[in-house]
Design a protein around this nucleic acid. Structure first.
Lengths: 127, 127
DNA sequence: TCTTTCGTCAACCATTCGGTTGACTACGAC
DNA sequence: GTCGTAGTCAACCGAATGGTTGACGAAAGA
């Protein structure tokens, strides 16, 4: 798994964890409160929380024997940035399609329409 | 895994697959072209593509014995919507924090500061 | 002190995942 | 027809995942 972006995506690939995150946008909650709606043991919920925590999506403090869970919304930015970067590129290319087609028409004598490995991929690896 | 949102997140939780998506923003590519930069077999790449395809992130056509891979950027919107929905809620709550604190001060006689199950979670389940 | 509540840790289990190798199909070229 | 190229399918393997149960720790209340 290694990098944070992978961990964040993986964490949100589980519906239960997504639901927890959703509910945490309404305010901090204890493990018991979070576990209540689901038909699974508290241990399972505890594991889910560990996954969310390791992805940096939540933090946990201490209140007597309670462990309140707090959502760290900033991590969303990591995903949003990644998504936006590549969506933009895809859309740009899509909008340039007519231009490309025209160019391809011109270049018909020159037969290398190489399109395969295009831009620099650059996996962000989080700054 | 079941729902599409889960499949999309899961698909992007792998660095290799994210890199493929990134490269596909530069234009369609064949399996061989996609496989080239990685130190894994073409079969492995084929599997990755199946995951991306089942998530709706790519589609594949037929060109003789070649199977060009095409990025479907619209699926990004699914994620973006989910993320934005809950980020907004989280930020709203954060900005309302002072108001909440004030209200909490007023409500001190009334001792139900219930915060646990707050808003309606509503797992989108893709329309 | 004893008990209850809230939560974690550890061990186990079935399933999924990312990778491999080997066999196979589909098409173009010779 | 035969060969080479592009790709998939199937079986297998080790590691990770999501769940369970059971035991334990830490703090509040009796």
């Amino acid at each position: 798994m290694s990098d944070q972006l992978s961990r964040v995506f993986a964490a949100l690939s589980d519906p239960t964890r997504r639901d927890m995150v959703a509910r945490l946008t309404g305010g901090d909650a204890t493990v018991g409160e979070l576990a209540a709606p689901y038909a699974v043991s508290m241990q399972a919920v505890s594991k889910h929380l560990k996954v969310l925590e390791e992805a940096g999506l939540v933090t946990r403090s201490r209140d007597a024997q309670r462990r309140p869970v707090h959502l760290e919304a900033e991590v969303f930015d990591l995903m949003t940035k990644w998504i936006e970067r590549y969506r933009q590129r895809a859309e740009e290319r899509y909008q340039r399609l007519d231009a490309v087609l025209a160019e391809l028409d011109n270049d018909e004598h020159n037969d290398e329409h190489k399109q395969g490995l295009a831009g620099a991929p650059e996996e962000g690896t989080a700054s």
